[in-house]
């Protein structure tokens, strides 16, 4: 009989897979409490090390054409489809039934395609030409915010990750994600998918570790523009809202059934954009013949 080779679960920072600088670990268990893998117990320094590549990737990622980002998101879906068996197996290890795991993987792939489609369309739906009462051409359009810290949903290993990352990066943001603490297996596998999907290094950075330890570092970091917290812990909510005053971070708190259609909509994209309004004068000469 052949002995299976086990994977070392590392972090995903700046397009590379380092171990945690802290050298610490925690053990992920299945629903019966059986140990399934050792995970990196990410530290404050790991988080801070992730913000640096996220910030430097922001310029290039947000400057890509929306169409190009759309194609890259689609590419992630293609890669995920190709590795579906691996994700089904990881989800079942973490306690899903086979059918539930398959549904979660299918929904994850389709959700990536859903946001791939929005990437070059949300602007047309949500931006505006404003009819100001002076001779000016005036328009408002959304722009990506910058670096977003994502506290991924705790209850789903894959769909939560996909549903929180895709809308954030669709508009050109970059992110640092803290994966589900209790269902972390898919996080690093998903990082491998991202890493082979034309997504530039640093656009998505994924950490594993303890929310309790890292939340305050996420919210107080001065180079993070916004936080997406997927959950309903009242203590965390209050802490995020209070500590956001450091640099007036935008705090978004979402708690969906992540497998449902409600968890996908373009407002999750616009939540992580700023509206920019531009004024430009219109010369008022020569209207002859314009009535024709």
């Amino acid at each position: 009989m052949r002995l299976e080779v086990l994977k070392t679960n590392k972090l995903y920072i700046g397009g590379k897979f380092p171990r945690t600088e802290s050298g610490r670990f925690y053990t992920a268990v299945d629903k019966n409490g059986k140990e399934i893998a050792n995970m990196c117990l990410g530290s404050r320094k790991d988080f801070r090390n992730s913000v640096v590549p996220a910030r430097s990737a922001f310029g290039g990622w947000s400057a890509k054409t929306a169409f190009n980002r759309s194609q890259i998101l689609y590419r992630i879906a293609e890669m995920l489809e190709g590795r579906r068996d691996q994700f089904v197996s990881e989800l079942t290890k973490m306690g899903s039934t086979k059918a539930a795991a398959e549904k979660e993987v299918n929904t994850s792939i389709d959700r990536l395609i859903y946001y791939a489609g929005w990437s070059d369309k949300y602007l047309q739906v949500f931006s505006a030409v404003n009819p100001v009462s002076s001779s000016h051409f005036n328009f408002s359009a959304q722009e990506a915010m910058g670096v977003v810290g994502i506290l991924a949903p705790e209850e789903n290993g894959l769909i939560g990750l996909v549903s929180s990352i895709a809308p954030v990066i669709a508009s050109g943001n970059t992110c640092v994600v803290l994966a589900s603490e209790t269902k972390p297996l898919c996080a690093i596998s998903f990082a491998e998918v991202l890493n082979s999907s034309d997504v530039p290094g640093g656009v998505v950075n994924i950490l594993t570790g303890k929310k309790e330890e890292l939340v305050s570092h996420f919210v107080t970091h001065m180079d993070v523009n916004a936080i997406l917290y997927c959950g309903k812990d009242e203590k965390i909510k209050k802490q995020l809202q209070e500590d956001s005053i450091t640099n007036l971070k935008r705090i978004l708190i979402k708690d969906f059934d992540w497998l449902s259609d409600k968890a996908e909509n373009p407002y999750l994209i616009t939540d992580f954009t700023e509206v920019k309004t531009t004024w430009h004068p219109i010369e008022q000469v020569g209207g002859a013949g314009s009535g024709y």
């Binding site: 169409f67 759309s70 194609q71 689609y74 395609i113 859903y114 791939a116 489609g117 929005w118 990437s119 070059d120 369309k121 373009p266």
Partner: peptide, 9 residues
């Protein structure tokens, strides 16, 4: 590619 994305939106 562009119009594919509109089908469900």
């Amino acid at each position: 590619f562009y119009y594919a994305g509109w089908a469900d939106k």
